[in-house]
Design a protein around this nucleic acid. Structure first.
Lengths: 193, 193, 193, 193
DNA sequence: AATGAATGAGATTTCATTCAT
DNA sequence: TATGAATGAAATCTCATTCAT
């Protein structure tokens, strides 16, 4: 593991548990076993590290959502796949997610802009599969797409506040639960599930 | 409006838009048109102001939920009332809610403990109405109470990230949407809705 | 006990244990069960209270030393009486003494001047009885008066660092010890003791 | 002279004349010609500097007392050597001593503990040479060891209040005076001096 | 005589960042 | 690549004192 990655990993561990402002560059370099010089050789600022953490995660989540979305399947099957991938991301990127949802507003403007775009792209994938489902007659015609999108995102995103890999339910159980819960509200005919 | 309230209001405005750490006591007293001495005469620390903001909100939300819960009605009617009150809180306490969900982890231990208790009490109200609904045969028998509680909370809480009083949908529309969305997933027979 | 005395007493208790700077006017008024207004009604400043504590003590000590010195007795008997009174003051004014020797340098110039004069007057009494004793042939001819004065003062004053009314030795035992110790060094013929 | 030493020296000069609380970090860095950052790069707190000053002095004094004590000589010769070294310390470490006796109670607990131990070790050396002298028949059998120890310490320590290197008496004259004064009170037979 | 809200200067400490090596 | 001493702006909080009531 090279120094750059060691710094990112240490920052991630610290920021996800203590928060961006509570973590000083001093603490990071001490945990990463390097020096101030080492840090600033690889990053132009503490904020850049925060950006890296955001970017790694959203890039991965977006890629997974796009892959799921591109499968030539019915909207129902596509949204189920998207949700399944989405929920599983919370298992793979737990620490990143805490940072992503808790510290995003600390990003400098230039970084925030980049992240925001990717986040909107992610949201659009969900909106458009809902749109396709309604058009295809699989989803309820009276569905408010915007509100449904936000409800789904909220429900799943909130996991960052409580999901525990060692908790009562496995990530797959949680995924299945969410899919069931959402599809009940979205599908015209639940029996097709 | 006395100085104490003016300080809380200024703090709320600033923290909800800029974040706890970005807001200095200097900024607060400048906006509240007082002095550092004035600030520390009324509060023992900046953190105490943060606590006040949390406490005012959660105390109100909890009170409303308890009132809704105590109505002698069926679990279906009770959960609908609870959800309706809950969603409307986001209209009345928008700024408080941003602070509540974004800055809670900045509370000092002593304050955090108090808030945590009230938050858990709130969660329990939802869990137990779900329990009652299942027992009464109104809600689906296979419902996972814990996950359903978290799904509902997540869905609604997430509003703090996007709800805009001047946005496309009124708070009542949003409330109705959430009730419809959730009840579809929870009820045994949606036609009873 | 009137408010003024209650304030002095509370200040004395606090300053003697915690030190002048560690004791705020807030603490004093809280212990004295009064208010800022009450405090500043009776004293023009916190420093004036410090002065009062100094003055009460040095005025008493000086009075006792003068009384002992004025007895028409031999230098030997006079110095023994002076020492005995001096040591006993440490029992009566323990808290005052801690403040006197620990906090004198915190006195404002105007107050310091007054205290310094009384302190010098006290020292002069000892110097002059030593002088009389040497002249009378009772004390050693080769005695350096200044150094002997400082040695005696140091020895006794140091008690403020260690004297404990509940300790191994009573105040009278300590007094007798000091008298014996000093007289051995001072007298021409110890057998006359 | 490196920055760390320059900070200690400036602190020593300032604290010994103005007192710990009257000296701000601002003043120190201004005299030491550095910045607050420079100060806190080398010390974790203002209190740590105070500790350094205490420790340098007591470590030296203790070392000298131990060396004097370890000489294979009679108790009489040993105590004379200890006293001589002790008094001379007041010439070498005048500023340190003012701080040591005036500001020790301002040390944080962790630091105070360390200093206290060394101070007690120093006191024990005097107590035990007195013990040896009594046992050897050189010192008076009726000597109260504890009180004698405190008398000797007080007498010499008090010098921190008055000793002036440019004063009437040289440090060697003062040392000889104290030795003579103390030995007169301690020895069985003064003629052996 | 007594209150306590309000002041504002100043205290200690933190921290991201720079730079000579 | 990497170091760590040094910076200085800014943070939170304290405190003796004032003053309208």
């Amino acid at each position: 593991m090279n120094l750059r990655d060691k710094i990112i990993q240490s920052s991630l561990d610290l920021i996800s548990t203590e928060g961006y402002h509570a973590v000083s560059v001093n603490k990071i370099v001490s945990v990463a076993n390097t020096s101030k010089g080492g840090f600033y050789h690889h990053f132009s600022s503490k904020n850049e590290v925060l950006f890296e953490i955001h970017d790694v995660f959203i890039t991965y989540a977006l890629k997974k959502a796009r892959e799921a979305d591109k499968l030539n399947k019915s909207p129902t099957k596509r949204i189920i796949k998207i949700l399944d991938e989405f929920v599983h991301v919370f298992d793979l990127y737990q620490a990143h997610l805490s940072v992503f949802y808790q510290e995003a507003f600390n990003l400098d403007d230039e970084y925030e802009k980049i992240i925001k775009e990717k986040r909107n792209a992610f949201k659009s994938i969900i909106s458009s599969v809902l749109y396709d489902g309604i058009k295809a007659g699989e989803f309820r015609q009276d569905l408010n797409i915007d509100l449904t999108t936000m409800a789904i995102l909220g429900m799943v995103n909130w996991m960052y506040k409580w999901y525990d890999p060692n908790g009562k339910n496995t990530i797959s159980e949680i995924s299945n639960f969410y899919i069931d819960f959402i599809m009940h509200s979205v599908l015209v005919d639940v029996k097709t599930l």
